[in-house]
Amino acid sequence: MEINLEKAKSLPRLVREKKPLIHCITNYVTATDLANVILACGGSPIMADHPAEVKEMTRLSDCLLLNIGTPKQTTLEVMTKAGMEANRLGIPVILDPVGIGSTPFRTELILEVLKKVNMTIIRGNTSEINTLYSELSKANTEKLFHLPRGVDASDEDRMTEDNISAFMEAAVLLSSITKAVVVMTGATDIIADKERIYLVKNGCQEMLGITGSGCMLDGVLAAYAAASDPIFESVTIATALYGLCGERAAIKTKECKGGTGSFHRFFMDEINLSSQFEQKGGLKIELP
Rank of each mutant, 00 (worst) to 15 (best):
A8I: 06
P51R: 01
H23N: 10
D33V: 08
A52T: 14
K9R: 10
K9P: 00
A8P: 01
K9C: 01
P12N: 10
A31R: 06
L11K: 08
I22R: 03
N27K: 11
S10K: 15
K18T: 11
V37D: 03
L21I: 15
D33F: 12
P20W: 00
I46K: 07
V37E: 00
L21G: 04
D49R: 06
E17M: 11
P12F: 09
E6H: 12
P12S: 05
S10E: 15
K7C: 03
D49V: 05
A40S: 12
R13W: 10
L11Q: 04
I38A: 05
D33H: 15
E6L: 11
A35D: 04
N36R: 02
L34V: 15
K19C: 14
K18W: 00
K9L: 10
L14R: 12
A48Q: 09
H23L: 06
E17F: 00
V15Q: 08
V37T: 12
E6G: 04
K19S: 15
T32N: 14
N27P: 08
L14P: 02
A8M: 05
N27G: 07
P20Y: 00
I22E: 01
I22P: 02
I25Q: 05
C41D: 05
K55D: 10
L34E: 13
C24E: 01
S10A: 14
P45V: 13
G43T: 08
M47G: 09
K19T: 12
K19F: 00
M47E: 10
M47F: 08
K18F: 00
L21C: 09
I46Q: 05
V54K: 01
T26L: 05
A31S: 14
R16W: 03
P12K: 11
S10H: 08
P45R: 04
P12I: 01
D49H: 14
G43I: 07
V54R: 02
T30S: 14
S44P: 06
H23A: 11
K19R: 12
L14W: 12
L34C: 13
P12W: 12
L34T: 13
A8N: 04
A52L: 14
L21S: 02
K18V: 11
P51Y: 11
V15Y: 07
A31P: 00
V15T: 04
V37Q: 03
S10P: 00
A35G: 13
I38V: 15
L39N: 02
K19Y: 00
A8H: 04
I22Q: 00
I46E: 02
T32I: 14
G43C: 13
A52V: 13
G43E: 01
